[in-house]
Design a protein around this nucleic acid. Structure first.
Lengths: 199, 199
DNA sequence: CGAATTCTGCACCGGCCGATGCAAAACCAG
DNA sequence: CTGGTTTTGCATCGGCCGGTGCAGAATTCG
């Protein structure tokens, strides 16, 4: 009954996400977004109403994909829980070296956004908080399972250990953006595991 | 032999630093800087040549002050090394709750800048790297001392443990900006110490 | 085909951006 | 008091910002 869109909305969201990921929210202009997506500005505004709304949807898409991938690693049943936690660290480190050429890591859009917005935008903060809660719960369950396996020997409660692991992942991300090499990040991750496995 | 300045350069640097700290580099306009410092734009440009240069100097001032305070804690001779490392965590957590009202934490200007610039600015990256090296060396020495005290029982080498501790501090900072409360941050810090003290 | 509806391309809006030009003011040395 | 030098206040620059208006193209339905 009307003219159909000539672009795929998800594809555009992906391309916008990458632009925001690379240059941040403020650092990405609506012109940049048009160049990244191939759309005209009026099409962007017609489909996504504002830069802020486009960012919110791109960020939501990112966290959903990223967290789904991480939960899949944490909850795959075919190996011990501590190995799954180690695999999560390995994936995060891989990610830090994936989407870049010689350039430094672009980190995690979630962490970048947390730092850029500092909770001043309630909508964005809420989105990040819900995502964080998902990951924390999965981490907690993995820690709990590791404890049952006898691999987690820490006396601390699993929720605290989960929050600790989550903070370490953010720290690894920041270290990567600071220029740390792969061996350094791996060493940090291995060391972090000691807090769980040692008694 | 000429008209003297009516402002104190260090005071202006401090005020500019706070503005950048709160809103980031891109998020702070030269008009904002004028409002924060009470100077006119031409005075700012006359004294600091450009926004970028003013930021560089403000960041240098921040890292010097911050790192000096942290090294003082790490190297104060009146208590065991692990206690000094714990005190460092306590100070970092205190800082996260210091310069804010009800607003979320503004974190650490060094971490914020690392994330915002992602190493794309060599001058800024170099400054942050030198600062990081200072803190890492001090941490390494403290870990070493803790080992001699018998408190650090980890089998890992001290340099790795230092990098690990440094990453955890960044993670704590990010967690604070994500809205974590004091008890959570303290729990993360305590848990992180387990990787050093347990065997 | 024609009517209705949506999307697209382009020009344009006011406003803020970092940076500069310039003249007047303020100071010091003589 | 004068000449030399720097700082200061204000106006202004070109350019980019997010966002909008509008005419015409493209599509589906009758």
């Amino acid at each position: 009954m009307a003219r159909p869109r000539t672009f795929d909305e998800d594809r555009v969201l992906d391309q916008a996400m990458r632009a925001f990921w690379r240059h941040g929210y403020e650092g990405t202009s609506t012109r940049d977004l048009c160049e990244a997506t191939g759309l005209d500005r009026s099409s962007v505004y017609n489909a996504f109403t504002s830069k802020h709304e486009l960012f919110r949807r791109a960020l939501a898409r990112y966290t959903e994909a990223m967290t789904a991938a991480q939960l899949e690693i944490l909850e795959s049943g075919d190996r011990p829980a501590v190995e799954r936690i180690r695999a999560l660290f390995a994936k995060i480190i891989d990610d830090e070296f994936a989407y870049r050429g010689d350039a430094p890591s672009i980190g995690c859009l979630g962490v970048n956004t947390t730092v850029e917005f500092r909770g001043r935008d309630p909508e964005i903060a809420g989105l990040l908080e819900r995502d964080s809660a998902l990951r924390l719960e999965s981490l907690r369950a993995a820690v709990e399972a590791g404890r049952r396996d006898g691999d987690v020997r820490s006396a601390r409660d699993s929720a605290s250990l989960a929050r600790y692991l989550n903070a370490v992942t953010a720290g690894i991300r920041v270290a990567a953006q600071g220029g740390a090499d792969r061996a350094t990040l791996e060493s940090i991750a291995e060391t972090a595991m000691d807090a769980l496995t040692l008694s």
